[in-house]
């Protein structure tokens, strides 16, 4: 199980996703735990920082947990177009 192909690349990319999304290891671990993850928080942290390997199934479960957390983040703010603003102001009834 341990030492499966591209294990290190998967680890680095999971870690990058966690860092970039701003979740703490605690938040990631809690969600991973709720998905039936078997490994405790310290080991997950050690895995993410590259200190120890995890079985491939646990890595995939961790990836799933991270992705679900990311999917639940509020979407980024979108930029409005000029006609959208004209339309929204016409509705609110402010005069020029």
């Amino acid at each position: 199980m341990i030492g499966f192909p591209h294990a290190e690349e998967q680890r680095a990319l999971i870690n990058a996703a966690v860092v970039e999304s701003g979740f703490t290891v605690g938040e990631v671990w809690l969600h991973y735990f709720s998905l039936s993850g078997e490994v405790d928080e310290y080991e997950v942290e050690a895995y993410l920082t590259g200190l120890m390997p995890l079985p491939s199934l646990e890595c995939d479960l961790l990836a799933l947990a991270v992705n679900e957390l990311i999917d639940d983040l509020p979407p980024r703010r979108r930029a409005p177009f000029s006609d959208e603003l004209i339309r929204s102001h016409a509705g609110s009834g402010d005069a020029e």
């Binding site: 809690l30 969600h31 735990f33 709720s34 998905l35 039936s36």
Partner: peptide, 17 residues
Amino acid sequence: SELRESLRSRDLVGIAK
């Protein structure tokens, strides 16, 4: 309450497995 939710969810995964 977070823990309860998490344990419940974990339990469901176990049953589904």
